[in-house]
Lab assay of single mutants.
Amino acid sequence: YDEVAAQGEVVRKLKAEKSPKAKINEAVECLLSLKAQYKEKTGKEYIPGQPP
């Protein structure tokens, strides 16, 4: 859960800094992968601010 939240912060920071699109896309792919792992382990969708 904490990893997903941390990666979400990374994506937000990159977007706020107007980073190159390729770098943002890479961070988003990582975030989506973490969300998929979270769902696989818990059986639930990741919802920000609602730990399992």
Results as ranks from 00 to 15, higher is better:
1 Y>E: 00
1 Y>D: 01
1 Y>W: 03
1 Y>Q: 00
1 Y>F: 15
1 Y>S: 10
1 Y>K: 01
1 Y>P: 00
1 Y>L: 09
1 Y>H: 01
2 D>M: 04
2 D>L: 15
2 D>T: 15
2 D>V: 14
2 D>Q: 15
2 D>F: 15
2 D>S: 15
2 D>I: 12
2 D>G: 08
2 D>R: 15
3 E>R: 03
3 E>H: 05
3 E>T: 15
3 E>Q: 14
3 E>Y: 05
3 E>P: 07
3 E>I: 04
3 E>G: 00
3 E>D: 15
3 E>S: 08
3 E>W: 00
3 E>L: 10
3 E>K: 15
3 E>A: 01
4 V>Y: 02
4 V>T: 00
4 V>R: 00
4 V>N: 01
4 V>H: 00
4 V>Q: 03
4 V>M: 03
4 V>K: 00
5 A>P: 01
5 A>V: 08
5 A>L: 11
5 A>W: 07
5 A>N: 07
5 A>T: 12
5 A>M: 07
5 A>H: 05
5 A>Q: 05
5 A>Y: 14
5 A>K: 13
5 A>R: 09
6 A>R: 14
6 A>K: 15
6 A>Q: 15
6 A>N: 09
6 A>C: 02
6 A>P: 14
6 A>Y: 05
7 Q>E: 03
7 Q>G: 02
7 Q>C: 00
7 Q>M: 07
7 Q>P: 00
7 Q>S: 01
7 Q>L: 01
7 Q>K: 01
7 Q>A: 15
8 G>F: 15
8 G>N: 13
8 G>E: 04
8 G>R: 15
8 G>A: 15
8 G>L: 15
8 G>K: 11
8 G>V: 14
9 E>L: 10
9 E>M: 06
9 E>G: 07
9 E>C: 15
9 E>R: 13
9 E>F: 02
9 E>Q: 09
9 E>D: 14
10 V>I: 15
10 V>C: 15
10 V>K: 14
10 V>N: 04
10 V>M: 08
10 V>E: 09
10 V>T: 12
10 V>S: 08
10 V>P: 04
11 V>S: 00
11 V>G: 05
11 V>Y: 00
11 V>I: 05
11 V>D: 01
11 V>L: 08
11 V>W: 02
11 V>H: 01
11 V>T: 04
11 V>P: 03
11 V>M: 00
12 R>H: 03
12 R>L: 10
12 R>A: 11
12 R>P: 01
12 R>Q: 13
12 R>M: 07
12 R>Y: 01
12 R>E: 12
12 R>I: 02
12 R>D: 04
12 R>V: 06
12 R>F: 02
13 K>F: 03
13 K>L: 09
13 K>R: 09
13 K>C: 01
13 K>S: 02
13 K>N: 04
13 K>V: 06
14 L>R: 03
14 L>D: 07
14 L>E: 15
14 L>V: 02
14 L>N: 04
14 L>A: 05
14 L>I: 08
14 L>C: 01
14 L>M: 06
14 L>Q: 00
14 L>S: 05
15 K>T: 04
15 K>Y: 07
15 K>H: 06
15 K>L: 09
15 K>S: 04
15 K>A: 10
15 K>Q: 14
15 K>E: 12
15 K>G: 07
15 K>F: 02
15 K>C: 03
15 K>R: 09
16 A>Y: 09
16 A>M: 13
16 A>C: 06
16 A>D: 14
16 A>V: 08
16 A>T: 10
16 A>E: 14
16 A>R: 11
17 E>F: 02
17 E>N: 11
17 E>H: 06
17 E>S: 11
17 E>Y: 03
17 E>I: 10
17 E>T: 15
17 E>R: 09
17 E>W: 01
17 E>Q: 13
18 K>T: 06
18 K>Y: 05
18 K>D: 09
18 K>N: 12
18 K>C: 09
18 K>I: 04
18 K>H: 13
18 K>L: 06
18 K>E: 08
18 K>P: 05
19 S>T: 01
19 S>I: 15
19 S>V: 15
19 S>R: 01
20 P>S: 14
20 P>C: 09
20 P>I: 06
20 P>H: 08
20 P>K: 09
20 P>N: 14
20 P>R: 06
20 P>Y: 01
20 P>G: 11
20 P>A: 10
20 P>Q: 06
20 P>F: 01
21 K>A: 10
21 K>C: 11
21 K>P: 15
21 K>H: 11
21 K>Y: 06
21 K>V: 13
21 K>L: 10
21 K>F: 07
21 K>M: 13
21 K>N: 09
22 A>H: 04
22 A>D: 11
22 A>M: 14
22 A>R: 10
22 A>Q: 12
22 A>I: 13
23 K>L: 00
24 I>V: 12
24 I>G: 02
24 I>T: 05
24 I>R: 05
24 I>C: 03
24 I>E: 08
24 I>N: 03
25 N>R: 13
25 N>A: 11
25 N>P: 01
25 N>Y: 06
25 N>I: 11
25 N>K: 14
25 N>C: 03
25 N>D: 14
25 N>M: 14
25 N>L: 08
25 N>V: 07
26 E>C: 06
26 E>N: 07
26 E>Y: 02
26 E>A: 11
26 E>I: 02
26 E>Q: 12
26 E>V: 05
26 E>F: 03
26 E>M: 08
26 E>R: 10
26 E>K: 12
27 A>N: 03
27 A>W: 00
27 A>T: 02
27 A>S: 05
27 A>G: 03
27 A>D: 02
27 A>Y: 00
28 V>T: 13
28 V>E: 12
28 V>N: 11
28 V>Q: 10
28 V>D: 09
28 V>Y: 13
28 V>L: 09
28 V>I: 14
28 V>S: 08
29 E>F: 02
29 E>S: 09
29 E>Q: 13
29 E>P: 01
29 E>C: 05
29 E>N: 14
29 E>D: 12
29 E>R: 12
29 E>A: 12
30 C>M: 15
30 C>G: 08
30 C>A: 12
30 C>E: 15
30 C>D: 10
30 C>Q: 14
30 C>R: 14
30 C>W: 10
30 C>H: 11
30 C>F: 13
31 L>W: 11
31 L>N: 08
31 L>S: 05
31 L>I: 01
31 L>M: 09
31 L>R: 05
31 L>E: 07
31 L>H: 06
31 L>P: 08
31 L>T: 05
32 L>P: 03
32 L>G: 10
32 L>S: 13
32 L>I: 10
32 L>Q: 12
32 L>R: 13
32 L>F: 10
32 L>T: 14
32 L>D: 14
33 S>K: 15
33 S>G: 12
33 S>N: 15
33 S>E: 14
33 S>P: 03
34 L>Y: 05
34 L>W: 00
34 L>H: 06
34 L>Q: 06
34 L>C: 04
34 L>T: 07
34 L>G: 07
34 L>E: 12
34 L>A: 10
34 L>N: 08
34 L>R: 07
35 K>N: 01
35 K>M: 10
35 K>A: 06
35 K>P: 02
35 K>I: 04
35 K>V: 03
35 K>L: 02
35 K>S: 05
35 K>Y: 01
35 K>H: 03
35 K>T: 02
36 A>M: 12
36 A>N: 11
36 A>V: 07
36 A>I: 03
36 A>P: 02
36 A>L: 10
36 A>D: 10
36 A>G: 04
37 Q>F: 02
37 Q>K: 08
37 Q>P: 00
37 Q>C: 06
37 Q>L: 09
37 Q>N: 04
37 Q>E: 13
37 Q>A: 14
37 Q>G: 08
37 Q>T: 05
37 Q>R: 11
38 Y>C: 01
38 Y>G: 04
38 Y>H: 06
38 Y>L: 02
38 Y>T: 02
38 Y>S: 03
38 Y>N: 06
38 Y>V: 04
38 Y>A: 04
38 Y>P: 05
39 K>L: 09
39 K>V: 03
39 K>I: 06
39 K>F: 12
39 K>Y: 07
39 K>P: 01
39 K>W: 02
39 K>C: 06
39 K>S: 05
39 K>E: 12
39 K>H: 03
39 K>G: 02
40 E>I: 14
40 E>S: 08
40 E>G: 03
40 E>N: 12
40 E>P: 00
40 E>A: 11
40 E>K: 14
40 E>Q: 11
40 E>D: 07
41 K>D: 14
41 K>M: 09
41 K>P: 01
41 K>T: 12
41 K>E: 13
41 K>I: 12
42 T>F: 14
42 T>N: 14
42 T>R: 04
42 T>L: 04
42 T>K: 05
42 T>S: 11
42 T>E: 13
42 T>C: 08
42 T>P: 01
42 T>Y: 15
42 T>H: 14
42 T>W: 10
43 G>W: 00
43 G>H: 03
43 G>A: 06
43 G>L: 05
43 G>F: 01
43 G>Y: 02
43 G>I: 04
43 G>P: 01
44 K>E: 04
44 K>Q: 00
44 K>P: 15
44 K>S: 15
44 K>Y: 04
44 K>R: 00
44 K>V: 03
44 K>D: 03
45 E>R: 04
45 E>V: 08
45 E>P: 09
45 E>Y: 04
45 E>Q: 07
45 E>M: 07
45 E>I: 07
45 E>S: 07
45 E>H: 09
45 E>L: 05
46 Y>H: 08
46 Y>P: 03
46 Y>T: 03
46 Y>F: 07
46 Y>S: 02
46 Y>D: 05
46 Y>C: 04
46 Y>E: 04
46 Y>K: 02
46 Y>I: 01
47 I>F: 09
47 I>E: 14
47 I>T: 12
47 I>N: 12
47 I>A: 13
47 I>G: 07
47 I>D: 09
47 I>S: 12
47 I>P: 08
47 I>V: 13
47 I>Q: 10
48 P>Y: 06
48 P>E: 14
48 P>Q: 11
48 P>W: 04
48 P>N: 06
48 P>A: 12
48 P>M: 09
48 P>F: 04
48 P>I: 05
48 P>K: 07
49 G>M: 10
49 G>H: 13
49 G>D: 13
49 G>Q: 10
49 G>T: 09
49 G>V: 10
49 G>A: 10
50 Q>W: 04
50 Q>L: 11
50 Q>R: 11
50 Q>T: 10
50 Q>F: 13
50 Q>H: 13
51 P>F: 10
51 P>N: 08
51 P>I: 01
51 P>E: 11
51 P>H: 00
51 P>S: 08
51 P>G: 08
51 P>Y: 01
51 P>C: 13
51 P>D: 14
52 P>L: 08
52 P>S: 00
52 P>M: 00
52 P>R: 11
52 P>Q: 01
52 P>H: 06
52 P>A: 07
